[in-house]
């Protein structure tokens, strides 16, 4: 019970920190460092839904735009596990194009390539940081059979 509470609190903290970092960071070539998408890829499907909610609320996109994308990304990574650092660049590229199709005012064609480029260090950090925190904070869910994603 305590571990579940600690895990939920850590997820919420990580989610809010990722949202604040992405929101406050400068836009480079029309895109922002995809902290929320990296968090969604590293933390699992329920957290991906919450991250999509924040992305829609803070990204001026209609509700459902990022929620659907993040949920699909989370489910896809759950089905075909791929390291976050490898999955994040193509996902970030597709997410920007997806948001543009939903009506977000992002500059094409630079923004998707910029998002994919910025996703490389973000994916590396989250791919290392999240499993590290899980292991050393005792938040790993190995007993329920769920493999931590790296």
């Amino acid at each position: 019970m305590k571990t579940e509470v600690a895990r939920t609190a850590a997820l919420l903290l990580g989610l809010v920190a990722s949202a604040a970092l992405q929101d406050a960071s400068p836009a480079l070539w029309g895109a922002k460092i995809p902290f929320l998408l990296a968090f969604a890829c590293a933390a699992g499907t329920p957290a991906a839904l919450a991250a999509g909610f924040f992305a829609d609320a803070l990204g001026f996109t209609p509700f459902g735009c990022s929620v659907l994308f993040f949920a699909a990304a989370g489910l896809a990574l759950r089905t075909w596990p791929v390291p976050t650092v490898a999955a994040l660049p193509p996902l970030a590229f597709c997410h920007v194009v997806w948001c543009y199709a939903w009506g977000a005012d992002v500059p094409l064609p630079a923004a998707p390539f910029a998002a994919a480029t910025l996703a490389v260090p973000a994916g590396a950090v989250y791919g290392v940081l999240v499993p590290f925190v899980r292991r050393h904070a005792g938040l790993d869910r190995r007993q329920s059979g769920e493999e931590p994603r790296g």
Binding site: D56, V67, A71
Partner: peptide, 29 residues
Amino acid sequence: ALGVLAAAAALLWIAGGHALAAEAVYPAE
């Protein structure tokens, strides 16, 4: 579980999702 989470997110959005998300990140920003 995912369906319930999605419905909860939709209800939260209707209730004021923008304001909730903005307030959540406000202290850090």
